[in-house]
Design a protein around this nucleic acid. Structure first.
Lengths: 343, 343
DNA sequence: AATTAGCACTCACTTCATTAGAGTGCTAAC
DNA sequence: GTTAGCACTCTAATGAAGTGAGTGCTAATT
């Protein structure tokens, strides 16, 4: 589809544009001398590249900027050539110093990532619903209120304060908690409501006086509020990009970033491995001007989460993609170690 | 210091400027007809007001804008006239619907506040160190790791995952937790380290084999990481203000908002009651262009937190101050109720 | 004596024209 | 196939002119 030389020209233009954020002209390329052709030749190739849809003009006599198709080609090229990456131990070096808990590892990774790239990093925690119940605790604060605490095998702690209905006495509550721990420990959190219905109901009915009421309360008390957790790093970082010299754009961007649930659902539907969606390729309206690069990391037994990097379409794809690949590997490794110790 | 009429003119200018954010001219005021004087008269008064430092010009032939001294006068005036506020039940109406836990009440208040004002609201949670230990739990995830959970009387849950040193066996751990709960439940969290030293050490030495090691781990495991919690609402809200039409200002502001600890220390050193610091009056460099209004809310027994509102110096002080007063009262009330049930 | 009308002057903001510079496309020469 | 040359295009920067809201001062009015 593209000749060798056209590919070369496209690369040079993208590289240049990534740095300057300004349209690139043929003469400028020729002057730089990265490729040994005259401005006119390059001009001709550029015209062809534009015709084929890999470049665009901002106006009729401007230089060219890469189109989304151009970026796509660039990115596919990078991913294809991405094989033996030298693992730089970005995260591992930091982690090995001491003991970090699960959430810290993830949060740290998000910060490191945005620090290294100057884009905004978003990490989607592993689907909480797929973690397994370790233990439930119920701590009464007063005769009328209690804190329910749910701990998963990943060390995630979820808690909720709620009022104890007058119909339930504290010994009943204790019994319930014991029953749950005994029967449901080790079950995936996602299946808890179901298991409640199938396994626990029958048992509880034997032990508890006022079952129906209690049941209702328990069910709401023992489910995690947010099924996933987002770790965001470097929101203000990305605003340094020249793309954000417009106030309105900043507002739009920040408003979007506040919609955590939308971002979460977006990140959830990514495939395994490295994934790049450029501009209009994005399904979500609010980021159609951005590029989103995602990578998955895994825990044991099929649990996984997503690392993502959000930046302008004009992104340092080469660097960023390999970084993300390294980091997702490292996280998988670090978390695997963690998981092994804590399963 | 100011004549009746000068006061009037100052008020009108401030009111106008709060709405338009543009310098106010004498002719414009006269035309509006809020005060029955000609442009020339008003002009003279404005000249006097400027001389006395209550007004400023942006350039030699511009209209006037209120100086910080002008705002200060305005604000002092408002606070003086602030007596019988009709309690509007902003929060209470919402809260009474169902049971809300402590953190929800505070978070909700922050959101409501920024929603009502279009400024950024910051609520400083009650000093965690002053809450009292309710119970400690230790849940082992694996032979080498455990989650330590600390619950306070306010229902606050703090947790930390850490690795269990090989020297400590699980029955020792259990013993320690029991000892702590038995002796320290009810003690203020702030005094825990001290009590550890004075009361627990001696007792533990009797029970535990390898005391020294265990002690070190416990001490770090059972102290809340962040002594206070910040609840921020409507960060992107404030960006709609015309003061933020400059990209650089937005960046500065957002960078500042990311420094949570700085904000926390700033809010901690506020007096009781309503407090307004305008522009340069602020000690912290980053908010010398803003006004900060703070109010305190109380829990039982001397525990208290701070509600704050951050906006441009051009702020609707009248509305905002009374709102903050109402809200701090309501929060005190709501939390008092909560506290009573859960003490 | 206080207030107001009148007038000259100031300054930011907008609009418009001009220019410089970087770019393109095309044709002809190498 | 590659390059040089040239006419043409468009943006961005610059500056001049006009507009309008504002001020300060003085003199007239109440």
């Amino acid at each position: 589809m593209l000749t060798e030389r056209q590919m070369l020209v496209l690369q040079v233009i993208i590289d240049e544009f990534i740095v300057t954020a300004h349209p690139v002209g043929s003469r400028a390329i020729a002057k730089k001398g990265t490729i040994p052709y005259s401005a006119a030749t390059i001009r001709n190739e550029m015209a062809d590249l534009e015709e084929k849809g890999f470049l665009e003009k901002t106006h009729s006599s401007s230089g060219r900027i890469p189109s989304e198709k151009g970026y796509r080609c660039h990115v596919d090229h990078i991913i294809a050539s991405l094989s033996g990456i030298n693992n730089k131990n970005v995260i591992k070096d930091i982690i090995q110093d001491g003991f970090y808990e699960f959430e810290q590892i993830v949060q740290l990774s998000a910060e490191v990532l945005s620090e290294l790239t100057n884009y905004t990093s978003i990490i989607l925690g592993p689907e909480l619903l797929e973690t397994k119940l370790k233990q439930i605790q119920m701590i009464t604060l007063s005769p009328h209120t209690a804190v329910a605490i749910l701990v998963t095998n990943t060390g995630h702690v979820e808690h909720r304060t709620f009022s104890i209905p007058a119909e339930i006495n504290s010994s009943d509550l204790e019994k319930m908690v014991n029953i749950i721990n005994h029967h449901l420990a080790g079950s995936p959190v996602i299946s808890l409501p179901e298991l409640f219905n199938s396994e626990i109901i029958s048992i509880m009915k034997k032990y508890l006086d006022d079952f129906d009421r209690s049941y209702h309360y328990l069910k709401t008390a023992f489910l995690p509020e947010q099924p996933v957790k987002l770790y965001v790093g470097g929101v203000s970082n990305i605003l340094m990009q020249p793309e954000f010299n417009d106030v309105e754009k900043i507002r739009t961007f920040l408003t979007m970033m506040e919609k955590e649930d939308e971002i979460a659902t977006l990140l959830k539907q990514t495939d395994d491995g490295i994934n790049v969606t450029i501009g209009q390729e994005n399904q979500v309206e609010a980021i159609k001007e951005f590029s989103l690069i995602t990578a998955t990391y895994r825990l044991d037994e099929g649990q996984h989460g997503t690392i993502a990097l959000l930046g302008p379409t004009r992104m340092e794809y080469r660097r960023v993609i390999s970084l993300l690949k390294i980091l997702s590997n490292e996280m998988t490794e670090a978390l695997y170690m963690w998981y092994k110790n804590n399963g």
